[in-house]
Design a protein around this nucleic acid. Structure first.
Lengths: 347, 347
DNA sequence: CTGAAAGCGCTTACAG
DNA sequence: CTGAAAGCGCTTACAG
């Protein structure tokens, strides 16, 4: 009843465990007849190698940890899907650590010593990780960070140019003739994405020679639909409501759009809405959502490959190489929420 | 540079590894001063137990595998979030296996011998697993299945009563006075959810003394937005289009609704739409989506607890207990897509 | 091409 | 309450 071991197979095939191991691991120098005999024993016994023992011996697990704040945020779910796919292609399984945005857990997972642990490396999309936390990091498992750019931290990153993307989104709204342009998603506490996108937003105003009405910059606790909804409600209660809004995530945009529509506004006629992330949701909303679309496939692929390269490099005990900053492409995807209208006519 | 081991700590504290292990594992019978001395050594060395070694020794990993077709389908993402949360509460980490609906992979993960593997148990939400596959299963790791009911298979299940839920949804449409009621989501190949919901749908017709117009039953390849959109387009091209549609998932419903709106129909005036799953998406769509809402928290909690109970029972080597069928509650959530309208007026 | 043997770092039955 | 020692099931340097 106990699972057959390498030793059981060796006994049955009349060879040493060494040879069985060689067969199991497709080692080349095994005589054909030996291999056949061993394979027969394996099949008869239904032998399957014990991964736990292999892990201990080799010191690696062929598992990657993916650290995300919330798996049910579509952007993370879509990214997770791609990352799992890439990892699988490379022979790795993904273990998900959901932090719920808890900074302490993010920090632990990314900065703590991770030797002898169940994964070989970490891909993390931190919400609130500070540069200081990263400076003091003593993790032995390689880490690749997603979606932020905390320079000087000596950690590999994959991200789009958030400043430029945000500026493009805002400039596009200017180009439509909008003048009272709001932004939803500012976070003063943030060291990351929110700050960069705010800089881009302001940059577009500067370039247009326009002045930012600070009342139109709305801070949010999270990047969820409900935060977008609450923010929009506040904006619409202003004496002079906006005629366009740039939301720092598609979820914020969908929440904002919902409130605008529910209050009887026409989108885009009365209010142009643009989001960020290009989640599938926005492609089926009515109106469909204009958005900044980061190339998630490139982000996932780059992150997995870079991480695995680090893992392999660690095996060869080379000196720690320079940290790498990978810039993924993005594009502005124009849909109905800023330009078209659905065929129902209206207004 | 090498990570400190139990032995290093023992040497430094002047005790045996046994004692260090006792301290690390909070074994009660350790003298206070011994404990203090060992703890000091642990802190000085920065010792952290090697999980890989512990796994091998104990034969378990405190990891659960979650097998889902696609992580970026919101229903699975929301469920995954809850499952990860529950697992964490119980001291388990979750490893995600994404099958892309590939039946072979589903089968392998659920039915193969899983001794000496990186997880202690499996929660699976199979798309195409057949009863036969389950009959022949020789997995040693416990399995809990989600969302289907393949009786007689001797595997634990957690599911809502899909037949009753589907009938209720359909009866509700009848109660609104709708008569040409379509269904999107039929799958003739399916052994699971789709079949059960179809039965419920037909049951409502039977109860109402109405005849199902087979042209209004639309089969789909997947339960995605695009499938719902394509199905709706077909229905609207019918000489006598439906006045209501029951979609077997919210994604199908959102796709269907999008097409209806884009063609200038009013929802719910011209077409009532009801979905299944209650994903957050539907709560912010315009109009908001009426749906069957399975209690995902209960599903996640029941699944994790049942699985862990099996894992613990296996430790005690009791005889394999009867399989358990856990029925989770659900409710019909009525929103704008079947009754209200947004304040913009219209029609 | 293959064998005998060490060792990865833990946990724990057995003594005391 | 603690020690000395075996063993979980692999991989692999060392010989031959």
């Amino acid at each position: 009843m106990a699972a057959p071991t390498l030793k059981d197979v060796a006994l049955r095939a009349g060879v040493s465990v060494r040879t069985v191991s060689n067969v199991v691991n497709d080692y080349v120098y095994v005589a054909d007849d030996t291999r056949a005999r061993v394979q027969a024993a394996i099949d008869e016994l239904g032998y399957r190698p014990n991964l736990l023992a292999r892990n201990l011996k080799l010191g690696r697990t062929k598992m990657l940890a993916l650290v995300v704040p919330e798996l049910d945020v579509p952007y993370f779910a879509e990214l997770a899907r791609l990352i799992i796919h890439e990892a699988r292609t490379a022979g790795y399984t993904v273990l998900i650590d959901q932090t719920d945005g808890d900074e302490r857990r993010e920090r632990e997972l990314v900065t703590e010593d991770a030797r002898g642990v169940n994964f070989d490396g970490v891909i993390a999309s931190p919400l609130s990780l500070t540069e200081e936390a990263l400076e003091g990091r003593r993790a032995s498992a390689p880490v690749v960070l997603l979606g932020e750019r905390l320079f000087a931290a000596g950690v590999d990153h994959v991200a789009i140019d958030n400043v430029r993307a945000a500026r493009e989104a805002t400039e596009y709204l200017f180009s439509l003739g909008r003048r009272r342009i709001a932004a939803i998603g500012v976070q003063h506490e943030s060291t990351g994405t929110a700050k960069l996108r705010t800089i881009g937003f302001r940059g577009a105003f500067a370039a247009a020679g326009a002045v930012v009405d600070e009342d139109l910059l709305v801070e949010v606790g999270h990047y969820h639909r409900e935060d977008g909804a609450a923010a929009m409600a506040r904006l619409l209660d202003l004496p002079e409501p906006p005629d366009a809004v740039f939301c720092f995530s598609d979820l914020l945009a969908l929440g904002a759009q919902r409130v605008a529509l529910a209050r009887g506004l026409s989108v885009p006629e009365d209010l142009a809405v643009i989001g960020f992330d290009d989640i599938e949701d926005g492609r089926y909303a009515t109106p469909t959502l204009t958005t900044i679309s980061p190339d998630k496939a490139v982000i996932a692929r780059s992150a997995v490959r870079q991480l695995i390269a680090r893992i392999d490099a660690a095996d060869e005990a080379a000196e720690p190489a320079q940290s790498v900053q990978i810039e993924a492409p993005y594009r502005l995807v124009v849909r109905e929420s800023t330009q078209g209208r659905i065929s129902t006519g209206g207004s």
